[in-house]
Amino acid sequence: MENLEAELKRLIIDIFELENITPVDIASETPLFGAGLGLDSIDALELGVALKKKYNIHIDTHSTGLVEHFASVKNLANFVVSQQENKSV
């Protein structure tokens, strides 16, 4: 899980072109949106596209839990793992 979290942090830095920020600067529990890292709604869409492309997972945009899944790197990692497990069942 730690490796996946590190991978997600790198992905976030790359796709959002966050200057002068390294993966160690992003705590796994830091909120990604609003007062935390400061990402916005367009970033959420961009992140969804990137996750779909990199991990080949399905994201249900009507899911009530989506806000929680995208809240932090830790939650995202759990979400990616759960989606991959669902596919393999």
Partner: peptide, 9 residues
């Protein structure tokens, strides 16, 4: 078929 939402905006 993929489009970057931020690039589009």
């Amino acid at each position: 078929g993929s489009v970057s939402p931020s690039r589009f905006s």
